[in-house]
């Protein structure tokens, strides 16, 4: 970790008013991200991992209630005017999405997408922008770039579309790239190519990255640090090595135990996490995981603070640091 943080989020909460009361998607999370660093955010669907970064980018519906602070290079993204945010979006912070199928406008050619994204931040003649766009497509691993430029999104395969999305995101050499499950919708072979590409381009430009996923394998390949989210809260944060070697929070352990391994005894079924996922409407103040936690006890009715268990490793659990972490 470096001294100067690129992004500093503190006390971020997001909730949506619904017919059944407030849906509290994110319940006060704080984290920092240094330049050139890659942070993985892991959690199941509904844990608030995507919503928190959408909130930072100002991409949620106007009805969303956002509290807290999100300092990007010292400027608060959450209180910024729309105009200021528009100049930061795409230029300083870029984003790629889960579903490349629906993230490109079906009525516009690939060329238009790239050129518009370029012209949003620079006054640049069209011809020049097109040239630059084509180069970027090549850099994103599209060999027949000049042909792809003239095509519509629906004429491309899923992997190609995600490459286009990456090209658009990295056009202006952003300092931060938020990748929201960019490989979930792709075939496994294509997933691998896209991950390699992201890694290559990240290392080339020194881009910081927030990688949102539910796949620990990707975390291991790409990230420096990991945050595990559950029920809108961060339950554990650690370096990649620490999380695999000595997970502390019962939820993290359960997640890791559910990953099949080659050397597993095939006759023993994979352990599943029992119980229902956390209800985001809940007003409960206790640990969100206690309903499903095998070790819950009375004290869990109160939200445990994050307790440090090692260098840069902490978990929000009453048992953190109090018992042998290796016991499983």
């Amino acid at each position: 970790m470096s001294d100067e943080s690129l992004l500093k989020v503190s006390g971020l909460s997001v909730s949506f008013p619904t017919g059944r009361g407030l849906l509290r998607a994110v319940r006060g999370i704080s984290y920092e991200l240094g330049p050139g660093e890659t942070l993985g955010i892991v959690g199941e669907s509904g844990s608030g991992k995507s919503v928190s970064s959408f909130a930072l980018m100002g991409l949620l519906k106007p009805s969303a209630v956002i509290e807290g602070e999100g300092l990007f290079e010292g400027r608060d993204l959450l209180t910024m005017s729309r105009r200021d945010l528009e100049t930061i979006r795409g230029r300083d912070i870029a984003m790629i999405f889960q579903d490349p199928l629906s993230s490109l406008d079906p009525c516009f050619t690939i060329s238009r997408h790239l050129v518009e994204a370029l012209q949003a931040h620079r006054t640049i003649p069209r011809a020049e922008a097109e040239k630059e766009a084509e180069e970027m497509l090549r850099a994103a691993g599209i060999r027949n770039a000049s042909q792809v430029m003239r095509q519509y999104p629906f004429e491309l395969s899923g992997g190609m579309r995600q490459r286009v999305m990456i090209a658009i995101a990295l056009l202006s050499k952003p300092r931060l790239l938020i990748a929201d499950e960019p490989t979930t919708a792709l075939d496994v072979t294509v997933q691998d190519q896209i991950l390699r590409l992201l890694k290559k381009l990240r290392d080339l430009n020194g881009t910081s990255m927030i990688f949102i996923t539910h796949n620990f394998g990707i975390v291991a390949r790409l990230c420096d640090r990991v945050m595990v989210m559950y029920g809108g809260r961060i339950v554990e944060r650690a370096s990649v090595r620490q999380i695999f070697e000595e997970p502390v929070h019962p939820y993290t352990r359960a997640l890791l135990a559910a990953i099949p391994r080659m050397d597993d005894d095939k006759s023993v079924p994979l352990p599943a996490i029992s119980g229902q996922p956390y209800d985001p409407h809940s007003e409960d103040a206790g640990c969100p995981f206690r309903e499903r936690c095998p070790r819950a006890f009375e004290r869990c009715g109160e939200m445990p603070p994050e307790t440090a268990v090692g260098d840069g490793h902490s978990a929000a659990c009453w048992l953190a640091g109090k018992e042998a972490p290796r016991e499983q």
Partner: peptide
């Protein structure tokens, strides 16, 4: 894609 376009800074 509308969200994606906004994210691209349009």
């Amino acid at each position: 894609y509308i969200t994606a376009l906004r994210a691209a800074g349009l």
